[in-house]
Structure formats: structure tokens, C-alpha cells
Write a protein that binds this DNA or RNA. Structure first.
Lengths: 200, 200
DNA sequence: GTCTATAACCGGATAGAC
DNA sequence: GTCTATCCGGTTATAGAC
């Protein structure tokens, strides 16, 4: 493995755990088994290294959302795919939500630019809703509220894990993991019922 | 207003915007219109000042939750009170969710201890659910999922505000505020429907 | 109690040898 | 490319005058 990859791997670990402010170049160097000077040799500054890691993480998420939209024939399909795919990805990259949230205050433009760069087709989603409402399949709901509700319920448990695990599950890690496993089968019917769709 | 209160007010503002790591004692001093040394005179260290502010905010939240539980005769009452009160408080203290999230990584025990100190009566809530399920008023749902769902949908929009505002509302502050205003009237029926309760 | 001045320290960045 | 040594700015914290 090249030194550059070694550094990136170390940076990923440290940055995702402690955020930009909380991370130290020394710690990244130690984690990579090299010295501070090399970090600056490969990536001019801490800021540059950080943005590299940050963008890299976020770019894994968006194509999945894109795909969920394109595959869907009705809004219920979308609810299904979106929650399912999103939860699967979070299971693979549990650090990501925290990472994104951590940096929202510091500089939201980085995140926003990446999201906007993806060009998510919200208009297409809106038309799915309109069609299903007209067909009497669901109750009217604003796209914005539906999206925010779904994303909230998917991301928040992972973000607030330490608190939830401790307060609701007596800090039992296994119980919390079971809880996360259940989310998919709980959330999809929860949302479908909430928008007035028939559950199967 | 005493100097101590002046400092606390300034610290509240700075800490809640930038978190522990991102805040500077100098900035707090400037905000309070005094000098750095006085901060240390009144509150020995940055750490101590921070914890003071943090606990203070969190302690405003919990009694409201407590009250929501005690007032409720069925789980639908609770959904109503909980979401309503929670959203009202968030409107008053929009910094709080961010603040809490920011500190989850640093040291969750502070938060967890405060929450546990309140001694929320989850068993009572569970009995409300059981009763209403038995009476056929709602579909069975696990208390843990219901609670997490509600808290997620209340808190997340405020936490992720910069992203949501930009991506969904073209960075129009007024549109986002309207969106937040609608949350109460959207969320309560959303959750009630999701648990299979009759909407009025 | 409040200030100015400064100590003590830390962390990002650079110089320069190899 | 990789290292050691060092600089330099910024931040917390303290000393000491008023």
C-alpha cells in the first residue's frame, strides 16, 4: 500500500471520529505510522486533506438515492427503495451521518455543493406523489415533509446512538444492534401507513 | 445584569454556535464585553464553563417530556403533547439540538447522566401503548421505535437545517421557517396515522 | 472585581539533511 | 520520499497591578 493511501486511510479514521476541529495532524501521522511532515508533503494542508476525505464519503451516498428515484414507479416504491437502500448503506458506513452532521456548522457549502452537483430529480418525485394522490392510492403530503421525515428516521438513530443505546437499552450494544436491524421492517410500514397507503 | 450572567449569556451564544472545540475564550470575552482573564476568574477553565452551559440547556428540555407523559391518558395524547411541546421548545432554543449532537462524540456520559437523572417513566408509556393496543385503538408498535421516530423527526430538521434549507428550499430562509412552522400540523397526523390511530 | 501583560503550551506548517 | 528539528501563530491560563 502506498504512503498516500496509508495517509488517506488514517485520515479517514481520525477525521470521521473527531471531525475537523477535534482531529490532530499528529494523530493522523501516528495512525498512519509516518510523521507529520509527510502529511503536508502529500496534502498541502489539514484543510485540503479534510475536504478530500469528506467529499469521498458523501459521494458514496448520493448515487444510491438517485437510483432509488429512477427505479420507482410510484411513491410507495420509492419509500421502499429509499429507506431500504439508505439503511443498508448506513450499516456499511455508520460513521458517515455523524461526519456530515459534525461539519454542517463549520462549512455547509462543501456538503451542499456535492449534493447539488448530483442534481437529484425532485420534480420527478413530486410527479410520483401527484399521480398516486390523484389515483387515491395515498393521502396528499408535501414532498419536503416526506423526505425530511424519512431521512430523519433513518439517520438520527445512528447519529444519536450513544444516547439512545444508553437511555433506552441500558447501554447494551447487542440490543441496540438488534434495534437497528429491525428499523427496515418497522420504518417502511410506518411511513406507508402514515401516507395512507395500503400495507401488504 | 451581573458580570457572571453576562459571561454565561455570551458563552451560551458562542458555544452553541461553534461547539466546545470551535469556540474561543477570546470570542466569548468580546461577546460579553469583558476580557479573557475574567472568564477564568469566574469559571476556572473553558471546560468548566462549557459544561455549565451544556447542562443548563438540557435541563430545560426534560421536564417538558416528563409532563407530556404524566398528562397523557392514552398513547395518542402522548404523541400529541410530546411532538407539540418538543417542537415548541425547539423553536425557543434552536441551538439545543445542535449543541447536544455536537457533544455526543466528545463525551456522551454528560448528556446521558442528565437524562437518566430525570428518571423518565418509560414503563408508564409502555402501559399506555399496551392498553390502547388491547382496546383496538392502535396497531402494535414497540415503544423504542415510536420514541426514536418522533424524536428523529422533531430534531433532525433543526440539526440539518443548513443542508435542508439549501437543497430543498433554494437557501430561502423564509421558506425554511414556514416549513418548520408546518411541522406540528404535519407530524402529529403523520405519526397518528402511522400507528393506526383514527385521525380526527 | 477588573484590568494588562505574559507565561506556558499546543498544533499546523516549513526548512533542510539524507 | 522520508525524516528531524524548528518556527510561528494562536489559545488557555495565570501573575500581578489597580
Amino acid at each position: 500500500m502506498t504512503t498516500e493511501e496509508l495517509i488517506l486511510q488514517a485520515a479517514r479514521k481520525v477525521f470521521t471520529q473527531k471531525g475537523m476541529d477535534g482531529s490532530r495532524m499528529q494523530e493522523i501521522a501516528d495512525e498512519a505510522g509516518i510523521n507529520k511532515a509527510l502529511l503536508h508533503y502529500y496534502f498541502r494542508s489539514k484543510e485540503k486533506l479534510f475536504e478530500k476525505i469528506f467529499a469521498e464519503g458523501l459521494k458514496q451516498l448520493l448515487p444510491k438515492v438517485q437510483l432509488s428515484i429512477e427505479k420507482s414507479e410510484g411513491i410507495c416504491d420509492f419509500v421502499h427503495y429509499f429507506i431500504g437502500n439508505y439503511l443498508d448503506l448506513i450499516k456499511e458506513l455508520p460513521y458517515l451521518p455523524h461526519f456530515v452532521l459534525h461539519e454542517i456548522n463549520r462549512d455547509p457549502t462543501i456538503i451542499v455543493n456535492i449534493i447539488k452537483g448530483q442534481g437529484l430529480p425532485f420534480a420527478l418525485l413530486q410527479s410520483l406523489i401527484d399521480k398516486d394522490v390523484a389515483a387515491g392510492k395515498i393521502k396528499p403530503i408535501q414532498l419536503e415533509h416526506l423526505m425530511v421525515n424519512m431521512v430523519s428516521m433513518v439517520l438520527f438513530p445512528v447519529i444519536a446512538r450513544p444516547i439512545i443505546q444508553s437511555v433506552l437499552f441500558g447501554n447494551d450494544e447487542n440490543k441496540f444492534n438488534d434495534f437497528l436491524e429491525e428499523r427496515k421492517s418497522v420504518l417502511i410500514p410506518f411511513v406507508l401507513l402514515a401516507i395512507g397507503a395500503k400495507t401488504n
